[in-house]
Amino acid sequence: MSGKNNINMSVKIEKLKLKNPVMTASGTFGYGEEYADYVDLNKLGAVVVKGLSLKPRAGNPPPRIMETTGGMLNAVGLQNIGVEAFIAEKLPFLRKFDTKIIANIYGESYDEYKKIARKLDAAKGVHALEINISCPNVQKGGLSFGADPKTAAAVTRKVKDATDLPVIVKLTPNVTDITAIAIAVEKAGADAISLINTITGMSVDIFTRKPHLKNITGGLSGPAIKPVALRMVWQVLQKVSIPVIGIGGIMNAEDALEFLILGAKAVQIGTANFINPQATMDVIAGIEKFMQMSNVANINKIIGTFKP
């Protein structure tokens, strides 16, 4: 609920109630504190934190990022402080805010996924888990879980068994048929699906003949990927009945509305935060304005109104 003019922006993703459909995308908003001076975190639908692994990870050697036309490549390599340090050092700060905290998790084995999920389940202040089965940057794990319906389903089941929290499975676009994965994780008990993660890409320095990224390949994000993300969200929506969260290249309210109109219950804002730390606030305000303009008081009257 955003108060003004009786506009109701709240959405429900199974058990998870959000005051509005706008979240931050994992890896683009740190642990929340990095942007807390710029954004009133209380106003966000949810904060999705940087992907957490069981043990801290150093990440990839630099250069890790490169701007490309309409987007950027990153090969951060899932650098993070580890789930225990997150609970001890970052969660107490996040708990102070009236928003939902979603922990994005990443493992290299089923057992790791399970252990991370247990630890977060026991910690106070986490409202949902988002399983990253899709990060293209790490040689082991990541890609293989998300690229095969069987392993994607198995990870989902392991995490579901380890927690009572709602489980969102985040899909990779780097597959031949994303709907097959979506169907498999729904069957395995996923409460929701989020998509898309970054699209694997690369870029070459013509003078040195070297790749711009030390890792050679990286994940493409930003405005360039929005049409692909919309297409995949649309395809998945036709095959599953659990809620879908749209991600990919959302820079403003119009972009977010495209996903919502298709049927996504919520959206995540990633790369846009880098060029405008207040992007999430602008998107929320823009959606509200659009609702006023179109005389719609409840956001759910916009979601899924696509007319193909």
């Binding site: 890896g27 990095e34 940087k50 630099p62 990022i65 990153n74 650098q79 880098f274």
Partner: peptide, 10 residues
Amino acid sequence: ACGVGACLGC
């Protein structure tokens, strides 16, 4: 990319 410590790109 971000300049504020969030993306871990630098």
